[in-house]
Amino acid sequence: MSIATKSSETRDEYTFTDEDFRVIAQLVKNKYGLFLQESKRALVYSRLAKRIRALGFNNFREYCKLLGSPAGEAEQSHLLTALTTNVTHFFREKHHFDQLQNEILPTLSQAARSGETVRIWSAACSAGQEAYCLAATVLEVFPEAPRFDFKILATDVDPVVLKKAKKGQYPREERDAIPADRIARMVDPQSVNDGVFAMHHSLRELISFGQLNLMEPWPMRKRFDVIMCRNAAIYFDKSTQMRLWSRFGEILKPGGYLMIGHSERLSGPAAAKFESAGITSYRKTHAN
C-alpha cells in the first residue's frame, strides 16, 4: 500500500487528503507530543484504515470529524494506540538492570534503611514488563523493600496497554525472556495455564500503575532516585525531547539517574546538568 504525498487524495480504499493528515498530525502533536512527518503518511493510513473500517466510516474526513468532536475523546485513545508501537519484553536493554543491581540499588537500599524515601519511575511502562523487571531487580538486592518507603511508579499515556500492565498477565512465550534463575521470583506458579502466566504478587506490592501524559503537568510531589523513560522520546521532535529531558532533570534528586532508550540521546539545556553514567544512562550532577 502506498500513500500519495503530492496528490491531495489516495487511490486506496479510503479517501485520505492532505488536510486529513494535517488534522491528525496536529492533534497527536498537541495532545501527546507525537511528531508525524510527511514520510509517515503511509503508516498513518495503514494503521488508521482499520479503525475507519471498524467504525463504519466512508473516509478519513468523517474520522477526523469524530476526533474533533466532544464524543471523540475515547477515540483519541484508540488513535494513540494505533500510531505507537508498544514493542517491549522482559529485561529489554538488560544493561540498565545490571547497572541498577550492581551500582545503584545497593546505595538506595541503604538510604531506605536509614529512613529516606526511595522512588523509581517507569515513565513509559507500556504493557508493564519494564516495571515488573524493576521490581524483581529491587527485591533481589533489597528483599525487605516492601517494609520501607520504597516504591515504583509505572505510568503510560495509553490506557489500553496500561490495562494490560495492571493485569500483569502475558503470553507464555514471553516467559522465555525471563532468565531461568529469576522465573521463580517473578512468575506466580499457580498462574501458568491457558497459554498465559501472571506476575508474582510480591512484585505487585512495590508498583503503583497510573495513566499519565508526559506532555501535561505531572502530579508527583516527591523527587525520584531513578527514572526510566526508554524508547518513548523517539516519537517526539527535538524541541519536545529537550523539554522532556529538562523536566526529568527537575524531578530527579541530585545524584539521581535517568535511563533512556538505545537510539535516544540526552540533548539541550538538560545535558549540562547530567554526566554519562553508562550506556544511555545519565547521572544528575546539579543540586537544582
Rank of each mutant, 00 (worst) to 15 (best):
V118K: 10
V118W: 12
V118H: 10
V118T: 06
R119C: 14
R119H: 13
I120Q: 10
I120H: 09
S122Q: 08
A123S: 14
A124H: 10
C125S: 12
C125F: 01
G128P: 15
E130Y: 00
E130A: 08
Y132W: 08
Y132F: 13
L134H: 02
A136F: 03
T137A: 10
V138H: 05
L139K: 02
L139G: 08
V141R: 11
V141E: 15
V141L: 14
V141G: 14
V141K: 07
F142V: 04
P143C: 08
P143Y: 01
E144P: 06
A145L: 04
R147T: 04
A154C: 06
T155V: 09
T155Y: 09
T155R: 13
D156K: 15
V157Y: 02
V157H: 09
V157N: 08
P159G: 10
P159V: 09
K163S: 14
K164A: 02
K164G: 00
A165N: 06
K166C: 04
K166W: 00
G168M: 12
Q169N: 12
Y170P: 14
Y170S: 09
P171R: 00
E173V: 12
D176N: 11
A177M: 11
I178N: 09
A180L: 08
D181V: 07
R182L: 15
R182S: 14
I183T: 08
I183G: 05
A184P: 00
D188L: 04
Q190W: 04
Q190F: 07
S191I: 02
S191Y: 06
V192F: 05
V192P: 04
D194G: 15
D194I: 01
G195I: 06
V196H: 05
V196G: 01
V196E: 11
V196W: 03
M199Y: 12
H201V: 01
S202K: 03
L203E: 11
L203G: 07
L203T: 02
L203P: 07
L203S: 04
R204F: 10
L206R: 03
I207Y: 03
I207L: 09
S208M: 07
S208E: 14
S208D: 14
F209A: 05
L212W: 08
N213M: 07
L214H: 08
E216R: 15
P217I: 00
P219C: 00
M220K: 05
R221A: 12
R223H: 08
F224Y: 06
D225E: 09
V226Y: 02
V226R: 01
I227F: 05
I227Q: 09
